[in-house]
Write a protein that binds this DNA or RNA. Structure first.
Lengths: 223, 223
DNA sequence: CACCAGTGTAAGCAAGCGCTTAGCTCGGCG
DNA sequence: CGCCGAGCTAAGCGCTTGCTTACACTGGTG
């Protein structure tokens, strides 16, 4: 078995994990750096930040333990790059989804963003798990950078809800609370997918988006 | 400072964490064993299973490193007891909530269970974090025991939804999917509470229970 | 008294940790 | 050719890990 296809990496490729970490040509650096990123995502997702050793990661990437430090300053640096890139792409996914429906009104926008984010979490559940659940392992400065992106995602959803309430097409007593609930629903997909049920990412996206609309819609039991 | 109030334990008590781990008299064993449990919950919640050392735990409980092994066979054993007890109490919380509304109909039952579980996750967010997010650290046998309890909780919620659909008071196209979404919403509270917003556990419980009813209720846009 | 089970500690073992160092190989360029 | 920087490794440093061992103290029971 050649180095480039060392233990675990084939699996990662079958996963669609590798393609998530491909890049225009190589802003991510040489091939080994990209292999390390993919290997690290896989390992972190399986055993968590503290449960993963740098030797684990190096092995999966087909490098010696010291090989990691040719491309990354530290284990935390490697983790940070994954987390930051993952968040940037998640935000981009959300923004793109909202833009793609144009000025179609709050309901369509809400549906689009929830669908896109849910599908994303399911399709990239390995990456999403790393990105969502080990944030406290980041240094305070790095954490803050990532938190800023998270706030943008939250603001995007909250903005759509507020817009809908203002336009009278949503009935949402507690916009902040519902924003939290929606993001929880979506985020949590990364924790369990694909173990419960056999839905495709797209089916799940549609389902959750429909549920979001039900939560926001004016309902008959208004009194 | 006396042993019984070693570093971290005072905080845990102010938390309401300790009271969660009190017991009839002492099915949990001697006082030191209970202190170890509380200390371990606190440490696991803060840094995860792999990020917590047995020396951490012993320190917080005011014991020497070896003191842990007087009461627990291993770090995993300690973690398992926490996880199992936590799950048993969560299940009990859900069942009690449903029973407390008697034969009040699916809507009232759904509201009761979501409210109770959400409130629980918020009030015991430290324990809940340990119990929900490090399950893969359990041995396969222990994991299966805990998974069995989780399936009961899932079945409880799904049962209420099915009941409501049969009775014609709910309109739920995908019962399994909505069950998953509801439990995600509830579970995820442990991840962020209390950092976002200043809601009390009870307020959050009411909010989420109301959202659950909106998701299940027949709605005007039926065609 | 002797004895013992229960509870605790001091010391330390083997293994694993993140990371560094010194040195190798190799392609490109003068 | 000689030289250089990039990529990589073998070896290993200092430290921490989960856990064990050998021993000490205590209160209750014969």
């Amino acid at each position: 078995m050649a180095k480039a296809t060392a233990a675990g990496l084939d699996e990662a490729q079958a996963n669609g994990l590798a393609e998530m970490w491909e890049d225009g040509e190589d802003r991510l650096g040489p091939a080994s750096a990209r292999r390390l990123l993919v290997a690290a995502v896989d390992a972190f997702a399986a055993r968590g930040y503290h449960g993963t050793s740098t030797r684990d990661i190096a092995d999966r990437a087909g490098l010696s333990p010291a090989g990691v430090y040719v491309h990354f300053a530290s284990k935390e640096d490697l983790f940070f790059r994954i987390t930051l890139l993952g968040h940037e792409r998640t935000l981009h996914n959300a923004v793109t989804a909202v833009q793609s429906v144009g000025e179609a009104g709050p309901a369509r926008r809400l549906h689009a963003v929830i669908e896109a984010q849910t599908t994303w979490q399911a399709r990239h559940h390995t990456t999403a798990r790393v990105v969502e659940y080990d944030l406290p392992c980041l240094s305070p400065e790095h954490y803050e950078q990532v938190a800023a992106i998270r706030r943008k995602i939250t603001a995007l959803v909250r903005g759509i809800l507020n817009e809908g309430v203002r336009a009278g097409v949503f009935d949402v007593p507690d916009v902040d609370g519902m924003t939290l609930a929606l993001l929880s629903m979506v985020t949590d997909v990364a924790r369990w997918y694909p173990s419960n049920g056999r839905q495709s990412p797209e089916q799940l996206g549609t389902l959750y988006a429909d549920l979001a609309l039900r939560m926001a819609a004016p309902h008959s039991s208004d009194s």
